[in-house]
Write a protein that binds this DNA or RNA. Sequence first.
DNA 1: AATGAATGAGCCTTCATTCAT
DNA 2: AATGAATGAAGGCTCATTCAT
Lengths: 239, 239, 239, 239
Amino acid sequence: MLKKTPHRESSRLSREQRAADILKHARIVFCEKGYSDTLVSEIAERAGVVEGSVFHYFPTKRELLIKAVEQWYTGLIWDYDHRLESITGTWNRLRFMIWGHLNVIHEEPEMTKLIVEEIRPGPEYRNTAIYELSRNYTRRTLGIIEEAVAAGEFRPDVPTAVVRAMIYGGVEHYAFGFLHGTGDFSADEAADTITDLVYRGLANEGVAQAHMLSEPLTQIEAGLARLKKLTAPKKPASK
Amino acid sequence: MLKKTPHRESSRLSREQRAADILKHARIVFCEKGYSDTLVSEIAERAGVVEGSVFHYFPTKRELLIKAVEQWYTGLIWDYDHRLESITGTWNRLRFMIWGHLNVIHEEPEMTKLIVEEIRPGPEYRNTAIYELSRNYTRRTLGIIEEAVAAGEFRPDVPTAVVRAMIYGGVEHYAFGFLHGTGDFSADEAADTITDLVYRGLANEGVAQAHMLSEPLTQIEAGLARLKKLTAPKKPASK
Amino acid sequence: MLKKTPHRESSRLSREQRAADILKHARIVFCEKGYSDTLVSEIAERAGVVEGSVFHYFPTKRELLIKAVEQWYTGLIWDYDHRLESITGTWNRLRFMIWGHLNVIHEEPEMTKLIVEEIRPGPEYRNTAIYELSRNYTRRTLGIIEEAVAAGEFRPDVPTAVVRAMIYGGVEHYAFGFLHGTGDFSADEAADTITDLVYRGLANEGVAQAHMLSEPLTQIEAGLARLKKLTAPKKPASK
Amino acid sequence: MLKKTPHRESSRLSREQRAADILKHARIVFCEKGYSDTLVSEIAERAGVVEGSVFHYFPTKRELLIKAVEQWYTGLIWDYDHRLESITGTWNRLRFMIWGHLNVIHEEPEMTKLIVEEIRPGPEYRNTAIYELSRNYTRRTLGIIEEAVAAGEFRPDVPTAVVRAMIYGGVEHYAFGFLHGTGDFSADEAADTITDLVYRGLANEGVAQAHMLSEPLTQIEAGLARLKKLTAPKKPASK
DNA sequence: AATGAATGAGCCTTCATTCAT
DNA sequence: AATGAATGAAGGCTCATTCAT
C-alpha cells in the first residue's frame, strides 16, 4: 500500500517476457472470440497491462494476431517435423503427414479457424512466417511423393502440386463441418482412408501388386512404432 | 414532426423489380469491395434509391449479401446442372463436375471469395439456400461415383464422403493462389489432372488380385487397428 | 380466385367501421408493446389494411393512440358513472370511487400504463377527451365530499383538491409495483383501507361518534347491495 | 488504417473528473430537452469532448441518464435526510417529509419529471440507486408513523404502506399540473394541509370510545367481509 | 377510397489507435 | 518503459410519414 509505487504493481518483466505474455493472452482471446470480436482492451486486461502498452509491443491488432499465431505455429511445425523423421515407408510417411493435419484441426479447431479464415485470406499472408513454415512443411509431402516416384513406387507422371492440393484441401474440406460445430470425425480413420486413396491414385501399376502386399506390413510397422512411443519417455521435445 | 418529400425522380417500381435491382447492384459492390468494405449507402446510391429503401427490402446488410449471392448462385447451379444431363460416361461426367467448379472460380473469382470467405464461415450458412443448393449439386458427384461403383467400374468400398472432400477441397486449394492474386491456372488442364487422379484412385483394375493376396494379413491388421484405437485418443501432438 | 378483384379482398367497410376496426387493433398492439415499441405497420397488418390506410383515418401515430384510448376510456367512465348512481351513503360512495380506480388498474394494467405514462405526460393531454372525462369523473368524488361537508358529516374546512390528489395519487402510487410486474394487490382490501383513512381524516369530530357507529352499518348495506347485484340480471348496461 | 489526432486542446482530466464533468452537462441537457430529445452529441459538445468520449465513460445513453440523475439524487437525499435529524415531534417531522417532497418538485421540476416519467417507468428502475435511495428515504416516513403508533399518538392499526402511498402519491398528483406548466402551488401551504389531513386520519383521539361502542358489530362485519370476498373476484367492471 | 413504394434525417454506438505525460 | 485519457470517422439501422397512382 505504498503510495509511491510507480504505475501499478505489475511485476517488472523484460521486454521479451512482457511481449510473450501479451502474445499468450492474445492467442487465448483470439481463440475464444475470433479476430474481429476480440477487443484489444480485453487482451490488455488479461495480460495485466493497459491498452496502450499492447501497442508498444505490436504496432496493430492484426500484427498481434499474426505474431500470436506464428508463435504457436512454429512450435507445432517443429514438433511434427521432428516426429516425421523417425517414420519410414512411403505409406507410413504419407499417412503421418495427413494424420498430422487432421489431428491439429481436431485438437486445435480454434487456431485452425484463425489460420484458415483470418490469416490466409489476408493480404499480407505471403509475407508471413506462417506462410513460409507451412510451405516448408507441405513440401515434405511433396518430397515423400517424389522419392516414391524416383523409387518407381509411384507413377513417373504424378502431378505433385495437384496431389498436395487434394491432400490438404481434402483434409480441410472434410473437417469443415467439425470446425463449424457440426459433427465430429476421427483423425485416425480419416487418415487411413485418405492415405489409401492417394496411394492408390499414385501407385505404379507395374509394381502395384508388390507394394499393395507390403502395405499391410507397413501399417503393422507403424503400429509397433506407436506402441514403442508409449513405453518410451514422454514427449521428449515439445516446442 | 419531420416532413418528408418522397419519390424524387426515381421511377416507381414493383416490389420485386426494386428488390431485384438492389440485389443486382449489391452484388456488384460486394464483389468490388468485399463485404465489410462495402457501404450500404453506396449500394443504395448505385441502385438509385436512398439508404432507407435498401433496409425496406432487406432487414440487414448481411441478409442483403446472402440474398445477392443466393440469387447469383441459383442461376449458376441451374445452368451447370442442366449441362450435366447431356454428358455421358463416368470419366466425362466426373470431369465436368470438376471442371465446372474450377471454371466458376476462374471466371468469377470475386463471387467465389464471397462465398468461401464470407458466407461459408458465417454462423447462418446452414440455413442458407446456398448451402442447400451446394449440397444438392455436389450430390451429383456422389451419384456419379455410386453409379460407377454399381457398374463395377469403381471399387465397391469407395469412401464417397472423403472423395467428395478431396475433389472439392482439392479444387479450391489448388485455385487458392489464383483467388488471391498470385498466378493463374487452366481450368481445363487442372480438370484433366484431377479427374485422372480421382479416377485411378477409385478404379477397379488389378485390385482383385491384390486383395486376394493380402487376405491372410487382414486379421493382423484388424488386431492392430484395435491397438491403434487405444493409443490414438491421447492427444499425441497437442502442444 | 377472380383476378379482377380490385385491391385485395378486404371486405368493404364503411368509413366508421374501418376506423373503428383500426382503432380496436391499435389498442391491442399499444397494450401489448407500449407506445414507442408499437409499429404502425403492425397495427395496419393486424387490421388487414396497408400502412398508408391508417394515415387516411388518423393523421399521426400519436393521434391514433389518443383516439384508441379515448374510445376505451369513454365506455369505461360511462359504466362506472352509471353504477355510482345506485349507491348511497358517503362512505359507500367514496369507497366505490376508490375501488373503481383500483379495480380498473387491476383489470386493465396495460391501458392504465398507457394513460399514466404516455397520454398524461404528453403536451396535448389537456386538449384530450381523456382529460375532460377524467376531470368530470373525479369531480364526482369532490361532489361526494362536498355533500358530506354540507351535511355536517365532514369538517367544513376540508381541502377538497388535496383530498382528491391524495385519493387518486395514493391509489396510483399504491398500485405502482403491480403495474410494473412486482407483486399484486386486492382492490377490495385496498379500497376499504383507503376509504377508511380518508373518511377518518375528514370526519367532523363533533359528529364523529355517531357516524363511526354508522360506518359498520353502511358497510353492511353495501355488502347487501352487492349480493343483490348477483341475483339480478347480469350487467344490464355495458356500453 | 485511419490516423487519429487525439487531445486537441481539451485539458487532460482524471477519469473521475472527466466522468463527473460529463455527468454534470448531461444533467443539464436532459433537463432542458427531456431524455429522448437529448442528443448525446450535444452533451459531448457542452462537456468539451467528442461524442466517443462520452461512450468511453458511459456505455449507453440510458446509463448516462441514470447515472446523471443518481448523482443529483444522492446529494439531495443526503441533504434532506440530514436536516430531518434536527426536527422533533411527530407532526413536525411528518410535515418536513411532506414539505421536502413538495419542495423538490417545486424547485427542480425538470429533474422530477425525469425521475417520474423516465426513470421510474423504465425496466431497470429496481436496480437503480435511485430506487434504493428513495426506498430508504421514504422509510423515514414510515418510521415516524411507527414511532407515533408506539407512543400511542397514532392508532395502532395504521396501514403504513397505504399511508405512504397516499402521502407520496398525493403530493405528486397534487403537483402534476405545476409539473406540466399549468399553475403553481405553495409547498408550505400544501405541506400544512396534507400533514394535517394525514395526522387527523391517523390520530388516536376519540377513537377508543367509538371502538368500544362499535364492538358488537365487528362480528357482523367479519361475516360480511367473507361474503365480499366471494363476490369481488369476478371482474365486475372490466369492459 | 385505398394503396404501398419510397423517403430521409439522424440516432446511437464501436474501438483501434495516438501521444502527452 | 509504461500509462490511459481521448480520439473521431463512419456505419448500420429505424420508422413515421408522404403522395403519385
